[in-house]
């Protein structure tokens, strides 16, 4: 087989398949983890009927949703109603293309990169693609021909658009420190700087994380699907696999936000505190553990935080949410960019 075809087609194809399978598996088991962790937080057991300790629960859920009747409400705008879940799901999966899960390593004389693409505008790409998801939500809410769905969709659109701005500025602060938009480049910059960026950029990290939680419509910012007011928000009328797509997309987005927090602020696949406090922390054991494990461990921590928040916080009101976004996070993130820029200028000359 000629070399270019192998390089250009076969390997990326294999990677895409592996990535999709792994991501969807993690997403499925994330729902299981959420129910289990919430269960333990709330003095109950969580799923424990299907398989040992409920391990097969996500499979059972998936099967159930697959074989459910595919319902389209009578008054719905049929085409849009069917397309909307796909519009939400596809960007959520596409973003995984640029997430670097680990260091390049050699297998049988061939260098394998555990990411699909290392493009020099990766962060811009993620910001761009992630804004597409909101179209699916607003279209889904509108096409359902249900007032609760419409309100859910509108809320969601307003929320995601407003929180994208401070989030963008928080990302800019990381970019300023790294000097590159490439995800791999940012991790390498943290290795070179001997420090994870959340230490110098703690404010940006905080803003990013709050906005990230809001972007994914999770508690305490889960207004679009506020059960108490809007039944189930924009996906009230959705059932079966179409509902599952919304649901999976939400969890995939949670993974993206967590993965980006890991890459930009927590050293990506690097073991904790590279070369910092030499002797105490640079244990050889830490370096032996593959980067992918470190990456997934850090990502799990953020995902756990998501679930933790859900078990702890009440929900903001819509106007309060907008206040927090525009009156606090937006100016704060702007100031943060100035601060970081100044710091970078002074330190790097």
């Amino acid at each position: 087989m000629p070399e270019p075809i192998l390089q250009l087609l076969l390997i990326p194809l294999i990677k895409i398949v592996v990535l999709l399978v792994v991501v969807l598996l993690i997403v499925a088991y994330l729902t299981y983890a959420e129910r289990k962790i919430l269960g333990y937080m709330q003095v109950r057991l969580g799923p424990n009927r299907v398989g040992p300790k409920g391990w097969l629960q996500p499979v059972a859920d998936g099967l159930k949703l697959l074989v459910k009747e595919d319902l389209v409400p009578g008054g719905a705008e049929k085409l849009v109603f069917i397309i909307a879940p796909a519009i939400v799901m596809v960007p959520a999966l596409v973003m995984f293309a640029v997430i670097p899960f680990g260091e390049p390593f050699k297998v049988a004389g061939m260098t394998v990169t555990p990411y699909l693409a290392d493009i020099n505008i990766a962060l811009l790409f993620i910001l761009g693609v992630s804004s597409l998801g909101v179209f699916g939500i607003i279209l889904g809410g509108w096409s359902s021909n249900n007032k609760f769905s419409l309100m859910g969709g509108l809320r969601s659109a307003a929320q995601m658009v407003s929180y994208e701005i401070p989030m963008g500025f928080a990302i800019v602060s990381a970019v300023l420190m790294a000097g590159t938009l490439s995800m791999v480049g940012i991790v390498e910059a943290q290795r070179a700087a001997h420090i994870w960026f959340f230490i110098p950029g703690v404010l940006g990290f905080g803003i990013y994380w709050v906005c990230g939680v809001a972007e994914t419509n999770r508690n305490p910012f889960d207004l679009p699907e506020a059960e108490a007011e809007l039944v189930a928000g924009f996906h009230t009328e959705y059932s079966g696999m179409k509902f599952a797509l919304f649901y999976l997309a939400e969890y995939a987005n949670m993974m993206i936000v967590s993965a980006m927090a890991v890459v930009m602020f927590c050293g990506g696949w690097l073991p904790p505190f590279p070369n910092l406090l030499a002797g105490l922390w640079a244990l050889p054991v830490l370096a032996w553990i593959p980067g992918v494990v470190w990456f997934l461990a850090k990502m799990s921590f953020f995902l756990f935080c998501y679930i933790w928040f859900r078990g702890t916080f009440p929900r903001y009101r819509f106007d309060q949410l907008m206040n927090v976004g525009w009156k606090w996070l937006f100016p704060l993130s702007l100031a943060n960019v100035m601060l970081v820029a100044l710091g970078v200028l002074l330190l790097k000359g």
Partner: peptide
């Protein structure tokens, strides 16, 4: 009341 405002955990504690 707590569930309506979005805090789901008190529900399980109080029902215990």
């Amino acid at each position: 009341h707590a569930v309506d405002i979005g805090a789901i955990t008190p529900f399980f504690y109080t029902f215990r």
